[in-house]
Each structure stands twice: as structure tokens, then as C-alpha cells.
């Protein structure tokens, strides 16, 4: 395809936050040749140059909806061949298994999704850890990917917006692109070849989030 017809498709399988993701991606793509589309059409997904896989709510529901929508196959095909950005549960689905509802997931990145085990523990300021982690936390670049192109222009330790009770635990350190402290450090951004995914919500993370989506449009994995 030429530069004048690049398409970014946000996968519409019924996830709650897809409209926010789509709007933020449209904003990020302003003044670029990219066309941003929200679509549940497998043919449009197959033709897309890049894919964003959103996800919100329970993992089992997201997996079921993705299958029921007929979009699982084009998403897996995209994961083999083109840049794919997973968000929140859309990130968690990339791993092999989630403790949430004991749910097998896509298995594209070795590792599991676990629930925060912070009950009864206190934060450094003496208040108790709350689950979900809800709010803004810092994302640090991982030792494996200090200069990943997705981090371009985004300072180490930048703030992003999180809402989650489960977190990804990739088996291999090279699949961690960024980490965040909540009780323990956990992988808040993961990466493998043409796959990049975040536990936090770029679409709700103000300028830094838009910058990350903009980097995704430029990324050449």
C-alpha cells in the first residue's frame, strides 16, 4: 500500500473501551496519512496495516466475545504479520493463561496473568493497597528495551493511567518493555517482535498516551 492509504483498525468485538481507544487513535493520527477505523469486519481487519486490540472487563468475556465475533482468526493473522497494539485486557489476552476465571488466552507471548496479592499490605505512605489499582502510576523502561522505538519522546518514569486487578507476568525478561511498581514491580508494557501492549490505558493518559499511539503509527518492527 502507498502512504496515502495506510489503515489502522481498532478491533470492535464489543469491548467497553473501544470508542475511547478509537478516539485517541484518531487524535494521534491527525496530520498523518493514517486512516483510523473501528471495525468488526474480518475482511477490513485482514486488509489493515496495523491493529489495536482493546479490552476491558473480565478476561473470559473478552476471549468469548473475540471468538464469537469471528475476529479471532484475523487478529491471530495480524499478530503473525503486522504491528499490533494490545491495551489492558487486550494485553493480557496475548499471554498464555489468566488466573481471572482460569482462562486460557492467545498464547502469543509466554507467560501468565495473575491477580495482585496485596491484601493486608500497606503502601509506603501507610495507606492500604487497593485493588483494583486505579489511577496514575509511573512506567519505567525495562533493562531489555531502554531505547525501544515505542518509547521515543516519552521520558523514563512517565505517568500513565491504570485500572486493573490482574497483571501480566511474561516468562522471559526480553518480553518486558516497561515496568511499574505496585507492591512489586510488574510488566506494565510487553513486547515481542511486532507485538506491543500495555496494561495501562494510553487513551486515558493525556499527552503521553497520545504520544505512544503516535509512536505506534511510526513503528517499524
Amino acid at each position: 500500500m502507498t502512504d496515502s492509504s495506510k489503515t489502522l483498525v481498532v478491533v470492535d468485538y464489543g469491548s467497553g473501551n473501544l470508542r475511547s481507544v478509537w478516539q485517541a487513535a484518531v487524535h494521534a493520527a491527525a496530520d498523518t496519512p493514517w486512516q483510523v477505523t473501528l471495525s468488526n469486519d474480518p475482511a477490513i481487519l485482514r486488509a489493515a496495516n496495523r491493529i489495536i486490540l482493546p479490552g476491558q472487563g473480565a478476561m473470559a468475556d473478552c476471549m468469548r466475545e473475540l471468538r464469537a465475533s469471528g475476529l479471532l482468526e484475523p487478529v491471530l493473522q495480524a499478530a503473525q504479520s503486522k504491528p499490533l497494539f494490545g491495551v489492558c485486557v487486550g494485553m493480557q489476552m496475548l499471554l498464555e493463561h489468566s488466573e481471572e476465571g482460569d482462562t486460557p488466552s492467545l498464547g502469543l507471548i509466554p507467560g501468565r496473568v495473575r491477580r495482585f496479592a496485596l491484601e493486608g499490605r500497606l503502601q509506603p505512605d501507610g495507606s492500604r493497597y487497593k485493588i483494583p489499582q486505579m489511577g496514575w502510576n509511573r512506567v519505567h523502561r525495562s533493562a531489555a528495551h531502554p531505547n525501544h522505538p515505542m518509547w521515543q519522546g516519552i521520558a523514563d518514569g512517565s505517568w500513565f493511567y491504570f485500572v486493573h486487578s490482574y497483571y501480566a507476568q511474561p516468562d522471559r525478561p526480553e518480553h518486558c518493555a516497561g515496568y511499574t511498581e505496585y507492591g512489586e514491580p510488574f510488566a506494565s508494557a510487553i513486547v515481542r517482535d511486532n507485538l506491543f501492549a500495555t496494561q495501562f490505558h494510553p487513551e486515558k493518559s493525556a499527552d503521553q498516551g497520545i504520544a505512544l499511539y503516535r509512536n505506534f503509527l511510526r513503528w517499524q518492527p
Binding site: Q123, W136, N137, F162
Partner: peptide
């Protein structure tokens, strides 16, 4: 660590 939020 998680920031405390200010919400107008």
C-alpha cells in the same frame, strides 16, 4: 508508586 488523584 500510585499517585493520589485530584478530580475537579
Amino acid at each position: 508508586m500510585l499517585a493520589k488523584r485530584i478530580i475537579p
